[in-house]
């Protein structure tokens, strides 16, 4: 489903060329829970931007659900983000002046769903993350963990093929961070494909497969300890 083939992303800074991604080939199947790990500057964010159709590679091909996504226009990228991808960010990235329901409805608005259907789907998603009783609250009235759950609900509402989580626990304390990770596991158990980006090895171990990136290259690709234990 996610298929990166020999992806290069090269930035030109004056005379110097910076290889943010240096020949990355990666295949992720439906239903997987993959952690992409690396230190800052390793290229993991660039990798996530390309998987998330927020950026296009300098060379190489990226196909998502069989669609070649490496040569799309901005609007076509937007459409793919809208229909096939759900984003969860470190900073939650909720819009402060919209209430929870409106925040979760946003991707559905851009998808062109009628109001009734939107409200239904958004309410369902918020109920799923345990915030069904706070539809009219505003993000600022919630704790960090709750806000992250809203952003998960927003990612889920459109029933995407892939959920992309970029350091989802980075801004949370370890306990609420764990809650969020457990929730992601649950989603994975329900059959959702999840790609988790993190710099933290212990968090990466919560996924089923770990892909380590260093200097724009994949240096390790293995099942996680958790996965090994479970399969034993």
């Amino acid at each position: 489903m996610i298929d990166l083939k020999d992806i290069y992303k090269i930035y030109v800074d004056g005379d110097a060329e910076i290889h943010a991604l240096d020949g990355v080939t990666l295949h992720i199947d439906k239903g997987e829970f993959v952690a992409i790990v690396g230190q800052s500057g390793s290229g993991k964010s660039t990798c996530m931007n390309i998987i998330g159709c927020l950026d296009v590679p300098t060379s190489g091909t990226y196909s998502l659900n069989g669609v070649d996504a490496s040569t799309l226009t901005e609007d076509e990228q937007a459409e793919i983000r809208n229909k096939t991808l759900g984003f969860i960010f470190q900073q939650y990235n909720l819009i402060p002046k919209l209430n929870l329901l409106e925040n979760v409805e946003l991707p559905l608005i851009y998808r062109g769903y009628p109001p009734k259907k939107r409200t239904e789907l958004a309410t369902d998603a918020l109920e799923r993350v345990g915030l069904g009783d706070r539809l009219r609250k505003f993000p600022s009235q919630l704790s960090g963990g709750q806000q992250q759950r809203v952003s998960i609900a927003r990612a889920l509402a459109g029933n995407p093929s892939v959920i992309l989580a970029d350091e989802p626990t980075g801004a949370l304390d370890s306990k609420t961070g764990l809650d969020v990770l457990n929730f992601l596991k649950e989603l994975n158990n329900d059959g959702n494909t999840i790609v988790l980006i993190t710099h933290d090895n212990s968090i990466a171990e919560q996924a089923k497969r770990i892909v380590r990136i260093h200097d724009g290259k994949i240096i390790e690709d293995r099942p996680s300890e958790r996965c090994k234990e479970e399969s034993v």
Binding site: L54, F87, N93, L94, I95, P107
Partner: peptide
């Protein structure tokens, strides 16, 4: 700017 980024990541097109 951030709001615009969020909207774009959620699938807002140029026209939107």
């Amino acid at each position: 700017t951030r709001e615009i980024g969020i909207r774009k990541s959620l699938g807002a097109k140029h026209f939107d």
